[in-house]
Design a protein around this nucleic acid. Sequence first.
DNA 1: CATAAATAGTAGTATTACTATCAATTATAG
DNA 2: CTATAATTGATAGTAATACTACTATTTATG
Lengths: 227, 227
Amino acid sequence: MKDLINQIQIQVNEKVYIKDPNSSDLGKNIIAHSIKIIDEIGFEGFTFRKLAIVLNTKEGSIYRYFENKHKLLIYITSWYWGWLEYHLVFSTTNIPQPEERLKIAINTVARGHEDSEIFSFINLGALHRIVVSESSKAYLTKEVDRANKEGFYSGYKRLVGRISELVLEIEPNFQYAHTLISTIVEGILHQKYFADHLPSLTDIDHDDQKLAEFYCMMALATIKSSK
Amino acid sequence: MKDLINQIQIQVNEKVYIKDPNSSDLGKNIIAHSIKIIDEIGFEGFTFRKLAIVLNTKEGSIYRYFENKHKLLIYITSWYWGWLEYHLVFSTTNIPQPEERLKIAINTVARGHEDSEIFSFINLGALHRIVVSESSKAYLTKEVDRANKEGFYSGYKRLVGRISELVLEIEPNFQYAHTLISTIVEGILHQKYFADHLPSLTDIDHDDQKLAEFYCMMALATIKSSK
DNA sequence: CATAAATAGTAGTATTACTATCAATTATAG
DNA sequence: CTATAATTGATAGTAATACTACTATTTATG
């Protein structure tokens, strides 16, 4: 699996960047090191100046790739959702039972990364932590409508859409597939954050397996209750 | 009800502010107008300078009340959770059936404000929109652990705790009360945001009643499924 | 009416978030 | 292998942000 994964490239909406970071070494370093720095000091503390110093380059060079740090955040979170979607499609094909497919999907989201800790130059562990604690800042902004129109959130929307389809396979008359799945995906991220920082808001303590089980149980109970 | 509500004062952890904004006209204006400005231009665009200009005062005077704008955000969101808790306690007392109490609680969170649009000098409609789109930024920061230690999130935690207790009254052996309730509270906020900005992630379109019904159904199905 | 408290007014600093320009380096195409 | 295009490096500069500090003036209170 690892070998195969290294063959593919995750596509990110090209309007997110000025110059494709995959097209050069500097570009790849910008992605790799911004993930590292944001993971360490948080998105608010992260600046292109700090990144430039680490990369032994200048702010100006980074601005040739991304208009601002918010776009860079959209880039790396979109990349993550693209990667997860790839993973999801892979893990659910050839599973005949729709209920089983939904369970696998929820497990995929809850586990986040796993067998491939480093995907080419991207540290998936750090990226996953960023998604947990920073990804909602990609859309919780006054520019959300413009960004959405440009398609910046299509990766996330596609993922939610795909899992919602699995729900509809189980129960085609279920009216709340998107609400249920976006609640679960956001819920998984939040519960992980709460386990780390606000433990009284959760009952699941760093156990991705258990987290997945809870949300599977919740999903199936909710779907069936609607009949 | 409105008259009674105007009698009480919502308490916010006093470490959040330097000087109690309730103790002066300027303080109250800081709260009232920061809610207005954040609602209009978003938390990122909001600065103490802009607030000072609107209030015909100087940055320095605002800094005597709040160390920085992040603390002010914590203040106003804490205030909201305190207000909601008050509402919740009020609306669930004297209801004998635990299931009914849980339903009322979820409805209270989903409706957010309603019969009291303006609570003394606070515009609850604007505050509710801020809670929907900005409140998670109060804890999604690298300072979260320090802030949590200071008790800055106790209002939110108390609210989740209270509703979790209602869950346990229905089913004392349920293991995931906090996870379920924090998922629902966050879910309600997210679904409202999605309805406004990313509609493909939700099935509930600006209908607080329906939103509450969905999450009530989900809660009860999940609780019962665990038996 | 005195004096303490609060606010207004003015300055100033370090950092952020950029933009612009030109020189040096590196890639690529003929 | 060289011309030239593309990329990056280096330097500079601006407006805004996020503060801190100090003094003058106003307002409250005993």
